[in-house]
């Protein structure tokens, strides 16, 4: 099981309603419904992945988060999850706004473009970095808006979004990110996991 999903699962209270935006094959949804008493729904853009989810009996709706989040009423979920998808949207800012409208709490995870390996790659090779989490070439990447943990942290502060918890994930290792260790964690984390509220 992806370490990220364990961390997300721990952030979620029992008996809550959860929406997984960009739920992919539904692995996180299945993990959550096996390990917690939760009512979990999914939104996914890829037909192939939606069919896979539905074949597994998951309540997944085919749709594009940039348009289709509108159909969900305000605060209709206890948690809305956006796992490693934010960078692929045309307008991440609007999507975040919608997530915070639909969910009482929002969990966003971002592949950290500030990781030292990426910085080293760019510094010494002078080429766009290709990593395990970001395996694409610059010309075919679906990732339109890459950011670092620091960037996202700043974004939340500028927009008045409350950050409840920030967790760093580096390989199997998780640790807390705080204002005082942010610069360092931004260097060593592969993934940043944020628990937000409006």
């Amino acid at each position: 099981m992806k370490e990220e999903f364990k961390v997300i699962s721990k952030l979620i209270d029992e008996r809550s309603r959860v929406l997984d935006v960009g739920c992919g094959d539904g692995i996180l949804m299945e993990y959550l419904s096996k390990n917690k008493v939760v009512d979990v729904r999914g939104l996914e853009i890829s037909k192939e992945k939606v069919k896979k989810c539905l074949s597994n009996g998951l309540a997944v709706v085919e749709g594009n988060a940039e348009y289709d989040l509108k159909q969900f009423p305000d605060l209709s979920f206890d948690y809305v999850i956006l796992s490693q998808t934010l960078q692929a949207f045309m307008s991440p800012e609007n999507v975040i706004k919608d997530l915070l409208r639909v969910g009482k709490k929002v969990i966003v995870t971002i592949p950290n473009f500030g990781h030292w390996k990426i910085r080293v790659d760019l510094l010494f090779k002078g080429e766009m970095p290709i990593t395990k989490n970001l395996p694409y070439e610059w010309y075919n990447t679906p990732n339109l808006h890459m950011c670092t943990i620091q960037d996202f942290y700043n974004f939340c502060n500028n927009k008045g979004i409350n950050i409840f918890k920030t967790i760093s994930l580096n390989g199997q290792k998780t640790s807390k990110i705080t204002a005082s260790n942010l610069k360092y964690k931004n260097l060593i984390s592969e993934l940043g996991i944020f628990l937000l509220e409006k």
Binding site: R17, Q71, F72
Partner: peptide, 18 residues
């Protein structure tokens, strides 16, 4: 129909088959 169901938090799946 999907939108109407989501509006009341019903358990709904939807796919458009190509």
């Amino acid at each position: 129909i999907v939108i109407a169901l989501n509006a009341i938090g019903a358990d709904v799946g939807f796919v458009e088959i190509k």
